[in-house]
């Protein structure tokens, strides 16, 4: 494929519309899921099964007035939601949807995702500060301290997988797991490390961290939308709020993709490549896996009550970080032995 301007623009448009559509319809899935777990139908008035609800919500958000409270730092206040959306979009560049559906297989793909996730936590701080509202600011400090705490076990766990696969390139990591379900990194027996009992546990650590990193229940201390003020985006209305929302759902897709690539074999078919259509390695398996993970996210959100801020920080600093550090050492030792 030659790199023409048309191709570049087409790829960017596809990426942005994928993110936007995902955000819109994940909200729908979230509400339907909430209905499912609470034994009620969820949205059903607009269109079949309420499928027209997201575009209508989108139009509503876009046509609302963009309120800017008096006395805020205007430039910074307007920049914050853009800063929340932009890193999520950039991270999609390096996610391998299949062996040939990837925008740019950059050598440091894992690093890119973490780097831009850090940029996202910057946007929370900026939003909270520029709102000139102490509740916003307290909540943004909470959200960032949570993000910083869970970034550490997330990175350490990722490093163990990177050590096993010997590459920071997400395509390479996924390509090692193509021999059917037993080759996935989630299992304790890997070719290079022999028998590492902690592999499934580090998958759990990664999963918990990605739930916490995306600020979702039971770790949604930053916003707690159902009973507290909305947190760092209290003062945002219209598309300012919409961009935060879209960024959040884009981050969920990125977290699920990262989990899929690192532990669940990426785009590989669980039965190995059998040669006829649905049972080959293709993008369908990747999408199936990430939406399954997102379903589990929704399931957890509407099942578990919210933790306290101390419980949240203790879980990361006292349990997840020691476990992931121990796993790092064990993996390094096993890599030397085998």
């Amino acid at each position: 494929m030659s790199l023409t301007l048309f191709n570049v623009i087409l790829a960017v448009v596809i990426a942005i519309s994928f993110v936007g559509l995902n955000a819109a319809y994940l909200v729908w899935a979230e509400r339907k899921g909430a209905g499912l777990f609470q034994r009620r139908p969820g949205p059903m008035e607009n269109g079949l099964w309420g499928l027209l609800q997201p575009p209508i919500d989108g139009v509503k958000l876009m046509t609302k007035q963009l309120l800017i409270p008096g006395g805020v730092d205007k430039a910074v206040f307007i920049t914050a939601p853009v800063l929340a959306m932009f890193p999520a979009l950039v991270s999609f560049v390096t996610i391998p949807f299949s062996d040939n559906i990837i925008a740019h297989p950059i050598d440091v793909g894992v690093l890119l995702i973490f780097a831009f996730a850090a940029l996202g936590s910057m946007s929370l701080l900026v939003a909270g500060w520029s709102s000139r509202n102490k509740y916003s600011m307290i909540s943004s400090i909470r959200a960032v301290s949570q993000a910083v705490a869970y970034e550490i076990p997330l990175m350490i766990t990722t490093i163990t997988v990177v050590m096993i696969s010997g590459s920071l390139n997400l395509t390479d990591i996924a390509a090692r797991q193509l021999d059917g379900i037993w080759a996935w990194h989630i299992w304790p027996f890997q070719d290079d490390v022999g028998f590492n009992l902690l592999m499934p546990i580090s998958f759990l650590v990664l999963f918990v961290c990605s739930v916490a990193e995306t600020n979702r229940a039971p770790f949604d201390l930053g916003e707690a939308e159902s009973e507290l003020v909305a947190g760092f985006h209290t003062e945002y209305s219209s598309m300012g709020f919409g961009l935060f929302f879209m960024g959040e759902y884009a981050n969920i897709v990125i977290g699920a993709s990262l989990t899929t690539v690192l532990f669940l074999g990426g785009w590989s078919c669980p039965f190995g490549d059998l040669g006829f259509f649905p049972l080959t390695h293709n993008v369908g398996w990747f999408l199936l896996k990430i939406y399954l993970i997102i379903f589990v996210f929704i399931w957890i959100r509407w099942t578990f009550p919210r933790t306290t801020i101390y419980g949240l920080l203790n879980l990361s600093w006292k349990y997840l970080i020691p476990i992931s550090l121990f796993n790092l050492l064990l993996t390094a030792a096993l890599l030397k032995v085998f």
């Binding site: 973490f114 780097a115 850090a118 940029l119 936590s121």
Partner: peptide, 16 residues
């Protein structure tokens, strides 16, 4: 990536 991860993600967040 290191520039963004360390300088923007770590140092600027700490300063703020």
């Amino acid at each position: 990536m290191m520039q963004i991860l360390i300088y923007v993600g770590a140092i600027c967040v700490t300063i703020s």
